[in-house]
């Protein structure tokens, strides 16, 4: 199975709450643009804490 972190950019408020909880340091807020690097392990912590619901770990067969 394949997992990845989806960023809904139209929902994101680029606040950086997700960056602070990322255990891998995979997220970075570049002004108004959230970037995710390949060290992301799809743990989903960022998706839980996002105040707006802009992050989602999706699983595909």
């Amino acid at each position: 199975m394949f997992s990845m972190l989806n960023i809904h950019r139209e929902v994101c408020g680029y606040c950086g709450a997700c960056v602070s909880v990322c255990p891998e340091g995979a997220l970075e807020l570049i002004d108004a643009y959230l970037s995710v690097s390949d060290v992301c392990v799809n743990c989903g912590i960022c998706a839980r804490v996002c105040p707006l619901g802009a992050l989602e770990v999706v699983h595909e067969e």
Partner: peptide
């Protein structure tokens, strides 16, 4: 890294 339980998510 901030533990998930100790990050207040705010609006």
């Amino acid at each position: 890294a901030v533990p998930m339980a100790e990050l207040e998510t705010c609006a």
